[in-house]
Amino acid sequence: MSRARRWAIGGGLAVAALAITAMLVGPGDIDATQVLSAIGRGLVGSSRADDLIDAQVWLLRAPRVLVVALVGAALAGGGAVTQGLFRNPLADPSVLGISLGAAFVAVVGIFLGLDRAGVWVTPLLAALGAGATLGVLLGLATRSGDATTLLLAGVALGATFGAATTCVLALAGDRHELGIKVLRWLMGSFEGRSWGHLAVATAPIGAGLALAVALARDLDALALGDDVAASLGVSPRAVQRRAVTAVALLVGGATAVAGVLGFLGLVVPHVVRWRLGSGHRSLLPLSAIVGASTLLAVDTLTRIAPVALPPGIVTSLIGAPAFLWILLRQRSRRPT
């Protein structure tokens, strides 16, 4: 059995185990039997919205667990695609300001009240924001082709969008509720995510993941540069277009439903690549699986923690030092 397959099976089991754990733990005295029977009722559609246990298990925990797994898969998958596209291990939707771009456009939408037009508006706007940011970065990257320029441009874009978002908040000034809503969202949250949220996130993230996995060969071909890819019969422009679409769907969908979550897209693909090599055939699905299980673990921790922790802060708190550690470890291994 290949290493990738062992990882896939292990990762799948981890996702399942964490999802079950997440369903079992939480406030309130609900034992495993009650949880299972509530899930059973939910699955056959006889769950009652006015039953306390059904509500807690099937209306609060179940959709939240699924949203968390989906968002984890989306962000890690989006990170893997972004890194492959820019041929840079530091390329990540949150580092490059893509998440903030998505957040900014979505916040403007909320500010203008566009989100009242339907549940699909915010994901759509977030995807547009992510896609547009990525497009600008890609334009810069193809013009200068220099990793430092790209990262600095990403940081600058992120700062711009962050400031612009704050500006919108300031304009919203006396609309207190809006301000709190937006701030909570910028910190990243899975609070009260329902089946409705799951329905909204599934389409873009599902499409984005499918598109990402179907990009495996072409992202591989980019490994040695645009010219080699072209000589191998892969058009770099076509890959860019499809990769931008995939990342926009993934990051847009994830950001719309969970807010801004940092570092997951940076660290997870990095770890998978480091342990497993960089073939996108296994890197993309495995990043998604590991991303899902990581975020599930983080969210379950925040749920049972005695103080309320925004998951976005936790991913950054764990992610940033983990990244530094990986960086140092890799550097020390490099032959001189």
Partner: peptide, 13 residues
């Protein structure tokens, strides 16, 4: 004043 999860609120019933 403290922040708690929606789940806790529902569990308090």
């Amino acid at each position: 004043h403290r922040t708690i999860g929606l789940e806790s609120l529902v569990a308090w019933d």
